[in-house]
Each structure stands twice: as structure tokens, then as C-alpha cells.
Computed example of a mutant assay.
Amino acid sequence: MPLASPSPWRHLPNAISMVRVLLVVPICWLLWQQRWSFALLLVAVAGVSDGLDGFLARHYGWQSRLGGILDAVADKLLLIACIVILAWRQQAPVWLALIVCGRDLVIALGALGWRVMIGPIEPRPSLLSKACTLAQIIYLLAVLLALAHWPALRSTALAWLVAALCVASGLHYVSYWSWRAWRALRES
């Protein structure tokens, strides 16, 4: 009996993630131009596509290492770029942009250190990290809703929630991966 050929759709989640990466440029341009309603629309499309690619990958078994990396890169590029531009435009607190960027810088440097000292790293976002990303998306949408003159959640409380989750998940990553690195180096 011949083996079933792989589905031609198996790369769809990766393609969706790539579209999300490509959406960062027009979203940033719209934010810079203060075209809040159009930026809101594209951020909402990016948010829906984030859920869709994850669902497709898990539901049909189309997960891949590349897909995990693309998904994380798309999320980070979008969220960091948006928060930095909003802070630059004085529509989000600068301190929040520094916390969001600082957390991701610490995680990136930690991953680089792991790669250099130990070897390949398999990205595994924690539940706390997923909550942090979700809170950042909700915060971004709330700010854009308010700027587009739609009723929105109070973004100040959300800013503090994002900051708390960034700090908590950053500390969690540092402690968890430091412990794993210590064990890996001790065993080698």
C-alpha cells in the first residue's frame, strides 16, 4: 500500500505567519501617519491570523520548527514595532515600551547565550509568556480603538497588566533557562 502524500496545505500556517511579518511594514507606516482606523484594521487582521495559523498547525499536525520561529518573530516584530511607534507618538507610555523591549532583549540575549554555550535551543513559550503576548495584543487593540474613537477598555490598567506580565514572564524565563543551562553545563 503506498504511503499517503503530505498535504499540499501543510505550509499554510507558515505562509500565514509570513503574511503577518509582511503586515508589520504597512501597520508601522499607518501608525506613523496616525491613520488609527486603518492601523486598527490591519492589527486586527494580524491578530486573527495569529490564532488561525496556530489552530491550523495544531489541528492538522502541520507544526514545524520553522513555523514556531516564524510565529514568534511575527508576534515580536508586530508588538515591539507598534508599542515603540505608539510611545514615540506619545500614545503609549515610554516606560511600557522600555519594559516590553527590555524583556524581549533579555530573552533574545539568553537564547543567544544558550546557543553559544550549550547548542541549539527549542523555543517553548511558557503559559505566562503566552498570557503576556495576549495582554500586549489586547492593549494594542484598546489603544487603537480609543485613538480611532471607538469605545475601548481603559488602556492605563491594561498598560500596568502588560508591564506586570512582561516582568513576571521575563523573570520566569531567566530563572527557568538559567537553571536548565546550569544543569546542562554541569552534566557536560
Rank of each mutant, 00 (worst) to 15 (best):
A4P: 04
A4F: 08
P8G: 03
R10C: 02
P13K: 02
N14Q: 04
A15T: 09
A15L: 14
A15M: 08
R20P: 02
L23V: 00
P26H: 11
W29G: 01
Q34V: 15
R35P: 05
W36R: 15
A39F: 01
L42S: 02
A46T: 02
V48R: 07
D50W: 04
G51C: 03
L52Y: 05
L56M: 15
A57W: 08
H59E: 03
Y60D: 04
W62M: 06
W62P: 00
R65H: 13
R65F: 12
I69L: 15
L70Y: 11
D71P: 12
A74T: 05
A74I: 02
L78T: 05
L79E: 03
I80S: 00
I80C: 02
L86H: 04
L86S: 06
L86T: 04
V106R: 03
I107M: 11
G113T: 12
R115F: 14
G119F: 11
G119C: 09
G119P: 13
I121A: 14
P125I: 06
S126Y: 09
T133Y: 01
A135F: 05
A142P: 06
L144A: 07
L145E: 02
A146E: 13
A152G: 07
R154N: 14
T156L: 12
L158G: 13
L161I: 14
L165F: 12
C166Q: 15
C166Y: 01
V167C: 11
A168Q: 02
A181F: 04
W182P: 03
W182S: 12
S188P: 06
